[in-house]
Design a protein around this nucleic acid. Structure first.
Lengths: 135, 135
DNA sequence: AGATACACTTGCATATTGCAAGTACAAAGC
DNA sequence: GCTTTGTACTTGCAATATGCAAGTGTATCT
């Protein structure tokens, strides 16, 4: 399952080998907005990821140290996922994707509000959100 | 072939629906570095894209106005592809991917040199490169 | 103890990708 | 003009990945 088939030495290509499929960045997005998610939380997202794909992507992301598991405070049956520092550092990419989408696609209002703050002071926003996700 | 299957209203999801596969961003990358490419140029890239996938991706990217075709000055048998403004505006995303990769993966020296300029003054770099790609 | 919640697995149909070969047309060479 | 080469794709088919439905194992709830 975890075939690390590196297509070339290009950093873009290598990055895409890790998280460049249709689903991984959506998992990262959920974790950026919610900070921590359970397996069930991911399944609830609007895009409707299949359970086997979700399990497979969570594993790959964990192997690549983008996310990590931790114990749920309420129950041992639940698992919490959260971003590692490596995963949190995908935030600038995520922000630029949102900015591009704002320019060329339609975008919901709540997201627009966030982007307003981003555009006001991007480095500040990134620093603040990074700190929040780390904490 | 051109099924626009929108998974949700999330801008990240919608963006990935357009160029979020393993190959599209590599095509965009080639066009950012080379400005204009022929079909054969894309095939020469290190990752080794299959001809049918390339044709399919070029079509999708063209349909989504990320790239456009133009006549090759030398020959009517050749086709030149280049980025539209919408495609050029993917540059900030491309840059952030490179910066992330620089931090967490190994990255070739020539790319490092470029990133040095980026880090010196990111908005300036983006503006200059955008202008060059538009011209 | 039995039911329920949660995090996955498994099996199988469908869709996408990857590879090899082929086609169509323009240009270059003889 | 006729063949050969270069370029941009298409086509066919095998391999792989995805999507869906159902099932499994463990922990908690009653």
């Amino acid at each position: 399952m975890n075939k690390v088939k590196k297509r070339s030495n290009c950093p873009v290509s290598c990055s895409l080998d890790i998280w460049g499929d249709k689903w991984s960045l959506l998992i990262v997005r959920d974790l950026m907005f919610a900070k921590e998610c359970t397996y069930g939380d991911f399944l609830k997202s609007a895009e409707g990821i299949a359970t086997n794909i979700l399990a497979s992507r969570l594993l790959t992301l964990e192997e690549n140290k983008i996310i990590e598991k931790l114990e749920h405070p309420d129950s041992k049956a639940k698992v919490l996922y959260r971003l590692t520092r490596k995963g949190i550092d995908l935030l600038p990419i995520m922000i630029e994707i949102n900015l591009w989408a704002e320019k060329y696609l339609t975008i919901p209002d709540d997201r627009k509000a966030m982007l307003k703050k981003v555009k006001n002071d991007k480095p500040r926003f990134i620093k603040a959100m990074t700190k929040e996700l780390e904490g």
